[in-house]
Nucleic acid binder design. Structure first.
Lengths: 233, 233
DNA sequence: CGGGGGTTTGAGTCCGTTCAAAATACGTGG
DNA sequence: CCACGTATTTTGAACGGACTCAAACCCCCG
């Protein structure tokens, strides 16, 4: 159940297709490549359909290359993301496993090809540098939060983060989210036990902050979420 | 007191000197550069002496370039490290401030030069990619620890990490560290209050795990530190 | 209709925090 | 070199929040 993203490289392809037609390419680091270079990746990549629960790689696995995600998400990964690249770059084993949460098409780019490409295309490396920088900032933020924010604030923050990707609806202050996450996934994301998450949700509902029903969340007034965070900070 | 490393770029120079003579260059990402490229950095860099407590940049500062450290350490940074590069790469403000803990010589490499260099030298980008990957792994590990390890285990882990850099002495199982950190710095590193750190240290001494005197730490048997971690995990 | 995982709820415990005060270390100026 | 003032560290007592353990509930699927 260790559904964690590791590191990766993006891809393209329309319906088990090619990188040129890939809807997600614009969002991915690979958009830095020229048509000629993209062709190399396109030829070398291996794409496959995945179902929820499928495992991309396990913790401790030797890193064989990087993955690019299309039409779905792995943990916090979204279409266009490349995962598995940390172990790839550091030349280490995967520190964490990656598991599929929703039906997805995921492309695999093998070590040698990926390395060659990144070594010869500075722009590609820069893209990864940028996105990994952002990940690092997020990770440090997460640590700071875990020590200085209480559960309410962390949950409020989580909802605000998830909003950007999963806001099913949004008008004036109100908000509706359609999450791909189970309760225990959410619990793991802010570093608490499932029971604790359950209780926190209960309190939010009692206080009218947010209402959870299955995997949809309704937030009457988004500004209240900010208040929850400010109340602690 | 927000002594946190941000991001940077390395430098060289013997005594306010040049990058070619820099003792730390081999340890830094910049070792990837050719002599010609290094000359460019050497000409463009600005080096300065810093005293403990000096501030390199504050949280929220606009990122103007990157720093390379010589002969000292900033937070967890050590000679040869480059800090400030995260904000630099992401094109954002510094998320955290950086403050000097020990007398240091630190070189500043300005935005334009650093960017040009990293854009044209894939090898340099790869070095940064690698080190930032390691930082990211460490950051995620830190978060995991904060949620699943108790204080004893976290402190034991911290000592093991610090050992690599600050082991003043080491023979058979025994260990002696000379740390550049105050108690509250250590407390901040594992995400607890100073009082809690103080108590944890006390317990370690009562149990004969480690003895703290000022900033030197004696560990009679290093394997006991591993046991402390295993006991929880 | 019977699993089985996920979620909720409850009671009790423990760990780290908070608040407050004393003790120690440190730096500065005399 | 000592004295003073300040910052850091230590200690104590009490509180609180999250965890643990355990049981009940729910929902989805077969």
């Amino acid at each position: 159940m260790a559904t964690r993203d590791g590191d990766i490289f993006p891809r393209t392809g329309g319906r088990m297709g090619n990188c040129f037609a890939c809807q997600e390419r614009a969002r991915s680091e690979w958009c830095a490549l020229s048509d000629a270079d993209l062709k190399l990746i396109d030829d070398a990549k291996i794409d496959r359909d995945y179902a929820p629960g499928d495992v991309l790689y396990h913790q401790g696995d030797v890193c064989k290359g990087v993955y690019c995600i299309k039409s779905v998400l792995v943990r916090l990964a979204q279409p266009g993301d490349t995962i598995g690249y940390r172990a790839f770059l550091a030349g280490e084993e995967h520190a964490l496993g990656a598991e599929v949460l929703k039906p997805s098409v995921i492309c695999f780019v093998e070590q040698v090809v990926a390395r060659k490409m990144i070594e010869t295309k500075p722009e590609l490396g820069l893209r990864f540098l940028k996105s990994i920088s952002e990940n690092l900032n997020a990770a440090e933020d997460k640590f700071l939060q875990s020590t200085s924010f209480d559960i309410r604030a962390r949950l409020a923050h989580l909802l605000l983060v998830l909003k950007d990707r999963f806001a099913a609806e949004e008008k004036d202050g109100a908000l509706q989210l359609e999450l791909p996450l189970s309760r225990q996934d959410m619990a793991a994301m802010i570093g608490v036990r499932p029971e604790t998450m359950s209780r926190a949700i209960r309190k939010f509902e009692d206080d009218g902050v947010a209402y959870f029903s299955g995997r949809t969340v309704k937030v009457p007034d988004i500004s209240v979420l900010f208040d929850e965070i400010d109340a602690v900070a």
